[in-house]
Lab assay of single mutants.
Amino acid sequence: PQEEYKKRAKKALKKGDEDTAREALKRAGLSPDQAEEFIRRFL
Rank of each mutant, 00 (worst) to 15 (best):
Q34H: 05
K26S: 11
F42Y: 12
D19I: 13
L43I: 09
G16F: 04
R22N: 03
K15N: 14
D19Y: 11
F38P: 00
P32I: 11
A28M: 06
G29M: 03
E4H: 09
G16M: 04
E18G: 07
L30P: 00
L43R: 13
K26F: 11
K10S: 08
E3W: 11
G29H: 03
L25V: 01
D19W: 11
D33I: 10
R40W: 10
K7G: 06
K15S: 13
A35S: 07
T20M: 09
A28D: 01
A12H: 05
G29R: 03
A24E: 15
T20P: 02
K14F: 11
R22F: 05
K26L: 13
R8M: 15
D17E: 06
A24W: 15
A35V: 14
E36V: 04
L43V: 08
E4T: 07
D33M: 11
A28G: 07
E18K: 13
A12D: 02
Y5C: 10
A9G: 02
G29N: 04
Q2K: 11
P1A: 14
R40V: 07
A28K: 01
Y5A: 11
Q34D: 11
R40K: 10
D33V: 12
D33A: 13
A9S: 02
A21H: 01
R8N: 08
Q34A: 11
P1W: 15
E37D: 10
Q34L: 06
K14Y: 11
R41G: 07
P32E: 12
K11V: 14
E36Y: 05
Y5L: 12
E37H: 06
F38N: 00
D17A: 05
E3V: 07
A9H: 02
P1V: 14
K15W: 08
D17L: 06
R8I: 15
K14I: 14
Q2M: 13
K10P: 01
A28Q: 02
Q34K: 06
P32C: 08
A35E: 05
T20D: 07
A9D: 01
L25Q: 00
L30E: 01
Q2V: 12
S31K: 06
K14D: 10
K7W: 08
Q2C: 14
A9Q: 01
F38G: 00
P32K: 10
Y5G: 06
K7H: 08
Q34M: 08
K14V: 13
K15T: 12
A9N: 01
E23K: 10
Y5N: 06
T20H: 06
R41A: 12
E3R: 10
Q34T: 04
K14H: 12
D19V: 13
E36P: 00
K10E: 15
S31P: 06
A24I: 15
P32H: 11
L13H: 01
D17Q: 07
A12G: 02
Q2N: 11
K26Q: 10
G29E: 03
K11T: 13
L25M: 03
D19N: 11
F38M: 04
K15L: 14
F38A: 02
K10G: 06
